[in-house]
């Protein structure tokens, strides 16, 4: 017989509730510190490599040059104009596409016929690269803000419809049956069961739409605009001002993050209210 009595698993020390709370707090601090550290190392390394000439600052820009460009843009008053133009288009596209997408999903959910009739069209629209519609949108809506908002809406709306429709269809059939046994109308089933039950999926759609609506507005600005962050990026690329491209991209990152956190705040607020 093998003598393996010596190999014993060491039991962990028991912990108190105070230790548990401390552990939770420490792990939170650790994660946050690591997130900040990654950012600092990335920015520091980038700056160092461009300062020492390993990377060409003309091609790769650098954090300090990005800061100078942003300050310059702010000084001559153009920065906020560009930010507000893009932000306006994005928020408008985000709201319109979420509303239209959800309303279409409601109609498709309520009518089995409509769902079956429109299914192939929805599938084709979803797989179609929306940028391909760019020239048509410019001709139909003009080379201006409307065309950009339409582009933004087109990118988000089909995804919103498909996601919300799937969420509606996945609502527990037993609960729908229960509402029917209470003689609830279709509208009551929608407002008292379907919409509240699918709120978590709705928030997920909003979070995805935050990203997609930025894609839509920037893509639209690439095509037609005379102002906005997308315009700055395309202009910077054309005249080889990589500092301008990087500065605009950095601002975009911040704005997208703010919009995402706004949705997360809404989620928290509604959940608390529940």
């Amino acid at each position: 017989m093998k003598k393996n009595n010596k190999v014993k698993r060491q039991r962990k020390k028991p912990i108190t509730y105070k230790d548990y709370l401390k552990g939770q707090k420490n792990s939170k601090i650790f994660v946050f510190s690591m997130q900040i550290l990654i950012l600092i190392v990335f920015i520091g390394l980038w700056e160092l490599l461009t300062q020492t000439g390993v990377l060409d600052p003309f091609i790769f820009s650098s954090p300090s040059r990005i800061c100078i460009t942003i300050v310059d843009l702010a000084k001559n008053g153009n920065l906020f104009t560009h930010i507000f133009v893009t932000l306006g288009e994005t928020v408008l596209g985000f709201i319109i596409s979420t509303l239209i997408g959800t309303i279409v999903a409601i109609f498709l959910y309520e009518s089995d016929y409509l769902r079956r009739i429109l299914e192939p069209y929805v599938v084709v629209l979803n797989s179609l690269p929306k940028i391909a519609l760019g020239p048509m949108i410019i001709i139909w809506f003009g080379a201006g803000t409307t065309a950009i908002v339409v582009m933004c809406v087109l990118i988000c709306v089909v995804m919103t419809t498909i996601s919300m429709l799937n969420a509606f269809l996945e609502v527990d059939k037993g609960k729908v049956l229960l509402m029917q046994t209470m003689q609830a109308s279709k509208l009551q089933i929608l407002f008292k069961l379907i919409l509240p039950a699918t709120f978590p999926q709705f928030i997920t759609v909003l979070k995805v739409n935050v990203g997609l609506s930025w894609v839509g507005s920037i893509m639209g600005e690439y095509l037609v605009s005379m102002a906005g962050l997308g315009y700055l990026i395309i202009y910077g690329g054309q005249v080889f001002k990589l500092d301008l491209v990087m500065a605009s991209t950095t601002i975009l990152c911040f704005l997208a993050a703010i919009m995402y956190f706004a949705v997360a705040l809404l989620e928290k607020h509604v959940n608390n209210k529940k």
Partner: peptide, 14 residues
């Protein structure tokens, strides 16, 4: 006339 109780309680969790 009827009250219906289903296989699951179907209480709304929210």
């Amino acid at each position: 006339f009827f009250g219906y109780m289903l296989q699951s309680d179907e209480l709304f969790p929210w």
